[in-house]
Each structure stands twice: as structure tokens, then as C-alpha cells.
Design a protein around this nucleic acid. Sequence first.
DNA 1: CCATACACCTCGGTCTTCTACATATATCGC
DNA 2: GCGATATATGTAGAAGACCGAGGTGTATGG
Lengths: 114, 114
Amino acid sequence: MVPDKSDLPQGTLDLLILQVVAAGAIHGYGLAQRLQLISRDVVQVPQGSLYPALHRLENRGLLTADWKMSDTGRESKFYRLTPKGRKQLKAEAASWLRLTEAIELILKPSGGSR
Amino acid sequence: MVPDKSDLPQGTLDLLILQVVAAGAIHGYGLAQRLQLISRDVVQVPQGSLYPALHRLENRGLLTADWKMSDTGRESKFYRLTPKGRKQLKAEAASWLRLTEAIELILKPSGGSR
DNA sequence: CCATACACCTCGGTCTTCTACATATATCGC
DNA sequence: GCGATATATGTAGAAGACCGAGGTGTATGG
């Protein structure tokens, strides 16, 4: 029994999507499964969050998509990173790291500078 | 020159406030300064986020406040944790840890189980 | 007396996220 | 053949968090 699924803070979903898509073209449904698998059920993306997020990223020019047959014989939309998306992924990953380190400083009091 | 201030993902502000208040009664203005100091300018809480957040936490019964003189001679509202707030802090800190670990798994591909 | 730092507050817009609903195809068991 | 389930996509509406901009007032230093 996994503790509980935690809702994602805003912005992090974009980062996770970009990261998974960076590993290879994938369709939305599979992406959600993959996130859940890798995170050991901690990250569970509801469809009502997933698809709007994908459309946002596509509209912002970070992803491109084309319809193909999935290996189950159904039509699905495969997403790939654009160069702009790759750049954005880099920026967001760095930003995430900077933020988590800062929060770590606050959560674990140590050398509280002065 | 610090890279750039990053906007806080929703929910994390509550966690940070609870954590700082847990270290001792403090007023809003000082709390914002303290967060900025400890995080080395990464976390900068605008007042338009700060005060609504404090009111939310107070309404939810996680904080209590009373007016006192600050050491500069002005009236200010000093916040303290309630028992409920302490419990909530624990829960949110654990949740944050679980989430960051899960995201780490996604961001740094390694043993991607199967 | 004026600017700055301290200290509080609200309003309105923007954005994300989630719940719920809606649609369609392939496959498996019966 | 038929119904249930898994696959796969999507929209609509509501809730909520965050932030920019604005507003109030006091103390202090020049």
C-alpha cells in the first residue's frame, strides 16, 4: 500500500511531461502510465490534467505531435520535443533543482547564514 | 547576482511558512525576510501572496496570532503554530519529501523498474 | 519635512489542476 | 454476437493559489 497519491504543484507537470517525452516519442496515455510506473505510484496524472497540459505545451511550441498507430492497433498522438522544448526542459529542470535546494535549506535548519 | 527568483509552486508556500513559524513566533514581514535570507534570495515572497496565505492558515486553525510590539516599536501580528498546525507541518513535510523523491526518479533515469 | 524602511491589508486577473463527463476502438470471455 | 474492460482522446466547469498593483499608517534619518 502506497501512502497516498499527492496532487502535483502547478508547473511540475510540465517539467515531468517534457522529461519523459525527451526520452522518446510517446503518446499521452502511455506517458501517464510511464510516470506512474517510474514514480512507484506517487505521481498519478488524471486525464483531465494530462491532455490540457499536452495541448498547452503544444500550443507553446514545446511539443509537436503526429498521429500514428500505437502497438495495440489504435490511433494515437505521438509527441516529440521541439528544440524549443528541449531548451525549456533544461531551464525548468535547473529551476526545479534550485528551488528544491532552497527549500531544503529552510526545511533542514543548519548554517542559517548569520 | 543570484540567477533569478522562481515563483513558488502552489502549496509550497504553506509548508515554508509553517516551518519558519515552528522555529518561533514571528510576524509576517519578518517571516518573508527570513525566508529570503535562509534561501539565499531564491525564495522571495511578495506581500500579495504572503498575507493571504497567513490568513488562510489562520482560518484553517493551523496558526494563531496576537498583536505585540515588534523590536522596532511598531505593532505587529505575531504568529504561532497550533497543535493542529504542528501536525500539518509534519504531514506536509513528509509529503514534500515523497514527492521530490518521486520527481528525482523521473528526472534522473536509473533503475526505471522494468 | 520628505524619503525610506517597517508592517499591515485587499482586489482582480491569470493560471493550473482536478472531477466529471463524453466518445470511440480493440480484445477477451461467454 | 455481446458485454465488459483496457486503450486512447478529449471538453467543461469549479476550485484554488499566486502575484501585481494599489492602499494605509508609523517611525526614523537626513
